[in-house]
Design a protein around this nucleic acid. Structure first.
Lengths: 218, 218
DNA sequence: CGCAAATGTTTGGCTAGCCTAATCTTATTG
DNA sequence: CAATAAGATTAGGCTAGCCAAACATTTGCG
């Protein structure tokens, strides 16, 4: 059973290696900075995680997750994103509020809990921020997400998230009857200003290009 | 911000004083036994909690919660019972599975989370075990709960929980079509052995006194 | 009452995570 | 190819929670 702290280190290593933008060096300093601890502390933990065979690591060397470590890390991401989805969809949290609470909830240990939660939410593919949710086997569906503005007329897509988290934007989204998983059909698109006529839940609406750029679809 | 451990001590003190069956002495030894730690450890924590003004306590003296401590403890009970209700009602956990996971979930810090959860669940008054859920102000609705065996014939009541959590008992309960919130009408009661004929969901059944004593109704 | 049993506390010591300061290794660059 | 800068590690020390063992107090019974 991993401690909260150990789990957070694994998650951090994953973020800094896999998702590390362009340059994907983990590094004791970056890791420590990411977790708001001092490098010395990170070194201690790295030794411990190596001992537990969760990371591959030699003194002064590269830091990478082992197979087991990666599985654990992805599992935590899965929990985090499922909880975010729950908070957003069922408890009416706003997009910017979900993260902090999910940081706590992701450490609850109960396989049954997370599977049941997944089922309860209808096996969502994306969290409120449009990030893919790994499935129960730890497999991450490849995110083919793109902005609504990039969808061709007369085709359909499914909303998976937003890019803007401002209240004004989200209010508008809600007003239009849009939500995660809503199917959207693009009826037409004006060449002039990029505005689009879309249909969802049987209703039609016209939205600006600016709006469409901030809606993420599958 | 209280640590998990501190919260568990407060909860334990509450259980051992308020709810301590007949004899309601807290006591370092009992407290330690309840929390599966050694008395020395409990003494340490008691000093710390006294320091934080969460309990009233003098060396070799009685242990009681301060006003602040009681509020905190009741808040944790509230969270625990709301989570139990959530797990049971929304995620199809069984009666005996909810407690363990709720023990973890009760320590999540987020006022908004718990209020929204309460709302999501429809402001329930009782958890799956029939224990009253304190409201947001920490007030505990007086539990008017009583065993089914105490209900007079020809009157109706609503099931709010169980007293026994054994699998055999719960299996029986389910078989009879009983669940939280099921309305039950007592048709008759035998003076001889206390067995009762009851009706719920249009079906009738005869249950023993032992059974009726373990069903809690409002 | 008086003394043993029960109960509670103190002391010293342990691990997990964190820190600072000092040291060591690797990278960079003139 | 040094010499220094950047990065990583070690050493020693801290707090929260835990423990065992020694010590102190209270209870209760003959």
């Amino acid at each position: 059973m991993l401690s909260f702290t150990e789990e957070n280190y694994l998650k951090a290593v994953l973020k800094l290696t896999v998702n590390g933008d362009t340059k994907s060096d983990a590094g004791t300093n970056k890791l420590a900075a990411y977790l708001n601890v001092k490098p010395a502390t990170a070194t201690d933990m790295l030794k411990k995680l190596k001992e537990k065979k969760l990371i591959d690591y030699e003194k002064y060397g590269k830091i990478t997750l082992s197979e087991t470590g990666k599985l654990k890390a992805v599992e935590i991401i899965r929990k985090h994103r499922l909880w975010e989805t729950f908070l957003f969809e069922k408890l009416d949290f706003t997009w910017d509020e979900v993260h902090e609470v999910a940081e706590q909830l992701e450490h609850i240990h109960s396989p049954k809990l997370i599977d049941k939660l997944d089922e309860f939410l209808g096996y969502p593919s994306f969290d409120p921020h449009g990030d893919a949710i790994p499935n129960a086997k730890g497999e991450l569906r490849i995110a083919k997400q793109k902005p609504l503005s990039a969808v061709s007329p007369e085709t359909s897509c499914k909303m998976i998230g937003v890019r803007d988290n401002s209240t004004t934007f989200l209010k508008y989204v809600t007003q239009l009857g849009l939500a995660i998983n809503t199917s959207i059909k693009i009826i037409s698109r004006q060449e002039f200003d990029g505005s689009m006529e879309i249909e969802m839940n049987g209703k039609t609406a016209t939205v600006s290009q600016k709006f469409a750029e901030n809606i993420l679809v599958d």
